[in-house]
Design a protein around this nucleic acid. Structure first.
Lengths: 246, 246
DNA sequence: CGACGTGTTGAAGGAGCTCAATCTAAGTGG
DNA sequence: CCACTTAGATTGAGCTCCTTCAACACGTCG
């Protein structure tokens, strides 16, 4: 490592999930020009409507994508954690069609679009890994379409709890059976296409069914197999490297 | 042109939407090895669960992506038309997490994954255009999440009619105000997360409101501005080249 | 002709929404 | 240290949009 604490290390770790990288690939990533920043909960990485020139790596904390519809309704489209390259989507397309915001306090690194594109084509392994990464994001979007379109409230919530736990575990940030879910019930509602009131009742039902227990924001899954069954959850769509089985 | 009728021409046309291509770029695409095939309505391009080795270009006709949930419920995730590279998603990830099927009779060209990746990195304009293409797909997925999560039936249906018309027009296949929508009400229901019965009633309401009229599968938009308003439709998320304004 | 896929309509039921009140925990300023 | 505020969680009651169940109409195709 050329520097003491490489800011972009989480990006290397994430991309290696998709494609083995050699020394040169890794160095190229770590040498990317970037600007570090810390945001408080609610702070914006990009705002819907902005024109964009930088991409953004999430270095620590949790963030989310959201889109405003019609009369002020919000839809949360994705949740992101350490290592996620959070704004390739908006930056390559030059025009943000949705916002990305901090859920917790987060550390981010802004990287100029040109630098990303340059590395992607000079180091094909890196480029391919980034391409994979956007495709996996797409796969998760598709699962969310199916979930919010065709599953009932109980199933949707169970599904989200499985996905979040498993992704946190895959990122080495938590145990799938016990983690902090840094979302208010309002935000859960916007992610699931429900009202906060109904989210509250549905959480209660998951508890009564003996599938989870919770205190404040922390979730403990007391019966993973049944939670996954209720949520119709299969981890295929996450395309995780073959180490974390369902 | 090296051959009489270049099978892969629609791919060139589509990618040029995202990025200007020079002679060499175009030739490289047209020279891609591929296998042509014709499928009847309902025929599979890929099946959920298959392992994949080829990508697929849609040369003519209309296709759709779908995912099966829990007890036989289906969710239609996207609709595709000429020029769409329909299976980068599954092929690069090597494992199909959803199916892609013909909606009408379609002509397709299967292209080996390696050839795609090879061209993408030897011709960066092509690679970037393909990357854009997958990002635009992602953008459309996000809009569908928001739509199926936060809009009511009338709005969802109006939104879908606007999107389909505009995309057909952008692909040079139809007029946004008058086109063939090759979907049964059952399929519309699966795309919108509704029941076919409710789709039927909602179509009727759109007619009664004077926004559309229809005979068989053909749709005529009688009031685009109001249809777009009801559907909360803005074409931003399609990232179309600056020629087709909303 | 009968069968099947698709579209259309009616009536009844339910999952989730809206409106509204109450409760808790965590600040914040005096 | 305590009033005061505020964001979030929780609970109740009534309503509605959409679903489910059930017929029936229409065209195509064996």
């Amino acid at each position: 490592m050329t520097r003491d604490t490489p800011l972009l290390l989480p990006m290397v770790q994430k991309l290696q999930q998709w494609k083995p990288l050699d020394e040169a690939d890794r160095d190229a990533i770590l040498a990317l020009p970037c600007r570090a920043e810390t945001l408080r909960p609610g702070g914006y990485i990009v705002r819907q409507g902005d024109s964009t020139t930088t991409s953004c790596l999430l270095v620590s904390g949790v963030a989310f994508r959201q889109k405003v519809v019609d009369g002020g309704g919000r839809s949360i489209l994705a949740i992101h954690m350490r290592g996620d390259i959070v704004d390739l989507q908006n930056s390559l397309l030059r025009h943000a069609d949705h916002s990305v915001q901090a859920l917790t306090k987060i550390d981010v690194a802004f990287i100029p679009r040109e630098a990303i594109v340059d590395v992607a084509f000079r180091f094909p392994n890196v480029g391919l890994a980034m391409w994979y990464d956007t495709l996996v994001d797409g796969s998760i979007f598709r699962e969310w379409i199916a979930s919010n379109s065709r599953r009932d409230a109980l199933s949707r919530l169970a599904h989200l709890l499985c996905e979040f736990g498993l992704r946190m575990e895959a990122a080495g940030l938590a145990d799938r059976l016990c983690y902090e879910l840094p979302m208010t019930q309002d935000q859960l509602a916007d992610a699931l296409g429900l009202t906060p009131i109904h989210v509250n009742r549905t959480l209660k039902r998951l508890e009564e069914l003996g599938l989870i227990s919770r205190t404040q924001r922390s979730v403990t899954v007391t019966n993973w197999a049944n939670l996954a069954r209720v949520g119709d959850f299969s981890c295929d769509y996450l395309h995780l490297p073959a180490s974390t089985p369902d």
